[in-house]
Computed example of a mutant assay.
Amino acid sequence: MFISDFNSSDYQALLPEQFVAAINYVKTQDLVNMALGKYPIPGIAEEDAFFVVMEYDTNVESPVGPEFHKTYTDVQLIVKGEERFGWAEVTDEQYEQLAKEFSYDSEKDICFTALDAVEMSYQAMRYDEFYLFSPKTVHMPGLSVSSPGLVRKIVIKIKQPC
């Protein structure tokens, strides 16, 4: 997992050009007032990167459990409300074993695992920061910080290079 502040120039030096372009475009949008839904990122093919504006209620416990992806990296940021998330970095062996054991869905690019499948760390999302979850980062978003509440979140999906 990689965490950065939008006001920092560090991420621009550390991340691939396509990631930087996607993040820089999204941060210029009116994310608080944008309609919910999926959006393209100008200059990048939609199958390579897009972002989703979503709202949902957080939960004390996840109704679906931890997740990971194979095709896309998630870049997540919160624009309204508060959210806590769990995460765990996994080895190549763990990653392949989880994909087999918990039936990776290639059409939706997601695999949900059991909560006890990996040892998770937890933290709250902060405004003006983004959280990058690579395919080898199992993550569990949507958890409440103090009590369940409405969250507005942006998820940028960026295709992993082959």
Score class of each variant (00 low, 15 high):
residue 1 M to G: 03
residue 2 F to R: 10
residue 4 S to R: 02
residue 7 N to S: 14
residue 8 S to C: 12
residue 8 S to A: 15
residue 9 S to Y: 09
residue 21 A to H: 15
residue 22 A to V: 08
residue 29 Q to N: 08
residue 30 D to M: 03
residue 31 L to T: 10
residue 34 M to R: 09
residue 34 M to S: 11
residue 35 A to E: 15
residue 37 G to V: 13
residue 39 Y to K: 06
residue 40 P to Y: 06
residue 45 A to R: 13
residue 45 A to Q: 11
residue 49 A to W: 03
residue 50 F to S: 08
residue 52 V to D: 00
residue 59 N to Y: 14
residue 59 N to F: 12
residue 63 P to C: 07
residue 64 V to E: 04
residue 65 G to D: 00
residue 68 F to N: 10
residue 72 Y to C: 01
residue 72 Y to M: 01
residue 74 D to K: 04
residue 75 V to C: 09
residue 78 I to G: 02
residue 81 G to Y: 09
residue 83 E to A: 07
residue 83 E to Q: 06
residue 86 G to C: 04
residue 87 W to F: 13
residue 88 A to Q: 05
residue 90 V to W: 07
residue 93 E to K: 12
residue 93 E to N: 13
residue 95 Y to L: 14
residue 97 Q to Y: 08
residue 103 S to Q: 11
residue 109 D to K: 08
residue 114 A to K: 07
residue 116 D to Q: 09
residue 118 V to L: 00
residue 118 V to N: 01
residue 119 E to N: 13
residue 130 F to V: 03
residue 134 S to V: 06
residue 135 P to D: 05
residue 136 K to M: 11
residue 138 V to H: 01
residue 140 M to W: 04
residue 140 M to G: 02
residue 142 G to Q: 03
residue 142 G to S: 02
residue 142 G to N: 01
residue 143 L to M: 08
residue 145 V to G: 01
residue 145 V to T: 13
residue 146 S to P: 02
residue 147 S to T: 10
residue 149 G to K: 09
residue 149 G to E: 13
residue 149 G to Q: 13
residue 151 V to N: 02
residue 154 I to R: 01
residue 154 I to N: 03
residue 160 Q to V: 15
residue 161 P to M: 00
